[in-house]
Write a protein that binds this DNA or RNA. Structure first.
Lengths: 348, 348
DNA sequence: AACCGCCATGGAAACGGTTACATAGATGTC
DNA sequence: GACATCTATGTAACCGTTTCCATGGCGGTT
């Protein structure tokens, strides 16, 4: 590969002049610039980004560290990140840690010196250990982690408020005996959704110990929960699953058992996965703006890079929005109006 | 940030010794190694990957250039790539070109000097222009591009064979009057699938001009095709859509029109998206092993890196497999047995 | 004509590592 | 005891850029 020395030599100028010419600096004669550019073209010169960033202390790359690169959540997140990154001419250095906190630390270390900023979505770990892993000297944004525990900037989805809002909606629709299918016990999102549900139930219906069935976010767990409901003949007129996949499993099982949705039992989910609008009946759910979370995080890190030095930390919490479909009864003018507004979603 | 000079000074050794100690080279006394490691730990030394790769000519990163980072295809692909990369301790430098060939060239240039190898999925462009964009000096693998046109290594899905096999299956099931809903005219995958369908029809049923309805891979296009079919009272007993989304749209419209699937009309798709098993009735389709394509491509580039110098180019074509579900009639012992085998899928 | 800026240019020092090579001391062999 | 060999260490070159600083030529002012 041709280097800038080759270009300089071919153009009959010094390396310094070649560099200035190629980077569009001032203080270069038009004639020199032409000679250098011609030489570069002829030698098929491509600047060595590694060397350039070593020298200029700027890499134009942002590290993205995720627990896993799998499924729709990841896909949406990276999509949002990429949109903003691409616009800013930034590349993404991607690394997945496959769940382990150790892997996260390793990935972040390995990125030292080749990124200008970092986006990280930590697995379940305490805030103290987390901030010990974060790199010094470059801005970092933490995604999908309770922002109140952070001493760095972060952006998160308000799972608590989302679950609260969904419960509120179901109560407004007239449902009273609402069961919840919970997510994994050690999952933060699941915990927050459960808490939102529980508090809303206590506040709005007075029920202080509503039925909560265990689950693990899988379709099968939703089906199993439905089985329990049916077999136990539990006095339930609605089910709020902590995510859509479980709601889908629940729907299948209810249909199989001949329980009509929403007439005999309403079902709601959380996430608004693409499948949600296609199941029968289409699922009422909370849409979480995952791509927006990614886009916001990227925008934040770019913001930090521009206003360098001023390391004011910022925290953003994104609100999910209710998507009303046919798995809940369409009753009450208030509910209908609400759905119409929320359905539009938001876009950064 | 502490540099290796700081570590060397703190440990009372030369920079060279510090480097050797930290990288586990031989020819270092245990005592020296201990001192260096202690110093590094105390100073929280983290090696500067950029500098390291400049010096060692090795970055431990692979570039991944994709037309777009969106949807399930991308998600699966990166998942496969990441699995192999992670195992090999490689990081991914990701860039999307948002469709344009120009963007691809730019992205690849910007990666020069920070990657050891490249995985690229080109948009629609001729082979000549493509190879002009590929970087010199490092191995590159082209994904999802007609391998026979390439003078570099590549891995692709055999869309032609997949469509041929699907058509063959439908014919074996007793269907004769099969219509095809085509994908975008300028899309390579769509063209190959159409060709597979056409040739299979000609060979197996003698029909040389089967009905082909236009489409663009969207759900709406599938619905529109179904409308045309119904309105025109075309003599068709089965529809083979060029992808699952169109098949899904077609299914919805048929149901809406009161056409029973598969009794009055069979419907098949291509891709096996997650939705395929959830629609009513569940969709018979060709499963394409996208994650495997990514994993294979990454494995190939790693292979090239190991056996350096030996630049033997290799081309891999992955076969899709038939997934039989309820959108086609379950008749014939032969078909049933076939489905049982194919259903297992394959895993690298 | 002497002086003062200005500006295009080149030399060289970074940036933070790796590694070829030289060196000095220790060890082994005859 | 002289010589060859081996081993741990240090010196310095190098990877490909950017950029600070010195320099010299030039035009304009007095």
């Amino acid at each position: 590969m041709a280097t800038i020395r080759d270009v300089a030599k071919a153009a009959g100028v010094s390396i310094a002049s070649a560099s200035r010419a190629l980077n569009g600096h001032g203080n270069v004669t038009q004639e020199t610039r032409n000679r250098v550019e011609a030489a570069a073209r002829q030698l098929r010169y491509i600047p060595h980004s590694g060397a350039r960033s070593l020298s200029s202390q700027r890499s134009n790359a942002i590290g993205v560290v995720l627990p896993d690169v799998y499924g729709e959540f990841f896909s949406e997140l990276v999509h949002g990140i990429d949109r903003v990154a691409n616009q800013a001419g930034m590349q993404l250095l991607l690394s997945s840690m496959h769940g382990s906190a150790q892997g996260m630390a390793t990935a972040i270390r390995a990125m030292h010196g080749r990124i200008d900023g970092l986006l990280v979505m930590p697995p379940d770990m305490d805030a103290e250990h987390l901030s010990a892993c974060l790199p010094a000297g470059i801005p970092a944004i933490v995604m999908n982690y309770p922002v109140e525990q952070l001493d760095v900037s972060g952006v998160a989805i308000d799972n608590y408020a989302g679950a609260y809002a969904m419960t509120e909606f179901m109560v407004a629709q007239g449902y009273r005996r609402i069961a919840h299918i919970a997510g994994p016990r050690d999952n933060r999102d699941a915990q927050q959704r459960l808490a939102g549900f529980s508090n809303a139930m206590a506040k709005l219906t007075g029920e202080r110990s509503p039925i909560v069935l265990p689950g693990d976010f899988s379709e099968e767990a939703g089906a199993e929960a439905a089985r329990v409901l049916i077999a136990g003949r539990l006095p339930v007129d609605a089910v709020f699953a902590a995510n859509d996949m479980m709601a889908v499993g629940c729907l299948s099982m209810l249909r199989e058992a001949g329980v009509s949705v929403p007439d005999q039992m309403a079902v709601t989910g959380f996430d608004d996965i693409p499948l949600a609008r296609h199941v029968g009946p289409p699922l009422t759910t909370m849409q979480v703006h995952i791509a927006d979370m990614g886009a916001t995080a990227m925008a934040m890190v770019l913001q930090h890079l521009r206003g360098d030095g001023a390391t004011e930390l910022s925290k953003v919490v994104l609100q999910p929005s209710l998507i009303q479909r046919q798995s809940t009864a369409t009753a009450g003018p208030k509910a209908a109006a609400k759905s119409r507004v929320q359905n539009q979603g938001s876009e950064i």
